[in-house]
Design a protein around this nucleic acid. Sequence first.
DNA 1: GAATTCAGTTAGGTATACCAAACAAATTTA
DNA 2: TAAATTTGTTTGGTATACCTAACTGAATTC
Lengths: 202, 202
Amino acid sequence: MYTTTFCTFTYFFFDLFYQLKYYNRDFKMRACMPKEIHLSDSIENFLEIILELERRNKVARAKDIAEKLGIQRGSVTGALKKLEEKKLINYEPYSFITLTEKGAQIAKAITRRHTVLKDFLSKVLQLEEETAESTACRMEHAIDDLGINRLDNFLEYFFQCPRTGEDWIQTFIENSQSGKRDWERCDQCLDNCKTRHKRNIF
Amino acid sequence: MYTTTFCTFTYFFFDLFYQLKYYNRDFKMRACMPKEIHLSDSIENFLEIILELERRNKVARAKDIAEKLGIQRGSVTGALKKLEEKKLINYEPYSFITLTEKGAQIAKAITRRHTVLKDFLSKVLQLEEETAESTACRMEHAIDDLGINRLDNFLEYFFQCPRTGEDWIQTFIENSQSGKRDWERCDQCLDNCKTRHKRNIF
DNA sequence: GAATTCAGTTAGGTATACCAAACAAATTTA
DNA sequence: TAAATTTGTTTGGTATACCTAACTGAATTC
């Protein structure tokens, strides 16, 4: 009872921080912060997909979950029971499935991790859509929120700062394909940077 | 028999490519390339640690593996048998453990993935040593060689190109802590870039 | 409204990856 | 060299995350 109240309390403050747009900046993890509950990759994937289905169809159905995850219908039932036990979904036999508050919160966090990672892989490393997608899907379980916040900030800054962005990527990719390094060009490149920036400002 | 010969053949060419310094550039995955054999995270971790122990002590011992992985000695025996079956280690009961050619090749690839990821996390995202280490340890199983090559190229180019590198990171970190964006400064910053670059060249 | 189809559950089985504790081989020490 | 210690193995668990196939409840069609 005491613990529950305490958790609700900390979650409340956590949400507050989140909503105050601190969410994509860094903040020191404090002792009072809710330590991230460790869930298995499998459970995290379930939550992610249930959120997606919920957004599309209001509710999730076992059949669709099975399809999306590429597993058998029978395997879904077992997992749903576990998710229900952990109070992450609202579920009873033969019913539709929805996320609880707690489940939705976690599902959103995982979806965000996925998006940020995929953006990095496709927009910066220029991996193919499909590769970026599947790699992000595996990496999303390995990185924590501190890391994701940094990566998110990195992406934002990278594409805003005149020194980096699209054209930097362009030269990076050319370079890694040819393997050539021509430092004579840098002077010109830096000048172009400046011109581009001025054009953007005025 | 036929399959084995075929594999040896493809591996030979793969090695050739590798040694011709193509290894940290991109190359299109061709049908003839050996499709990466999927190993579980657990097995990959075993290989990684055996390589580390081998490098330090010439051979690996079950006790040290157990310690490094934080598991019981009993669990190691079972895993070693599986690794032996897959011809990844030289092992018989009560003997020392060494990697086979194939095992070493995979172990090195995983170690490289680890190093590259950790470099990105610590040097670019500026995560703490420990966080970078443990995150890399989890992510190394999720990314394939194409992705790692890109990331490796990215890091190399990032720290060589005058537009990026240490000082870019500096401004990025300052920016993500303060949240401020001061585009007036950019002109000055680009000029500094140029000066630094000239200093480096002459 | 009975029959059919579809969706969800149950039961029994597999593989992985661990554990603890008893046991056995190898090594060290006395 | 015998006893004690260390190291490695075996055995009998547990939990997770799947599978297949039989079965049952719900929805649709005739």
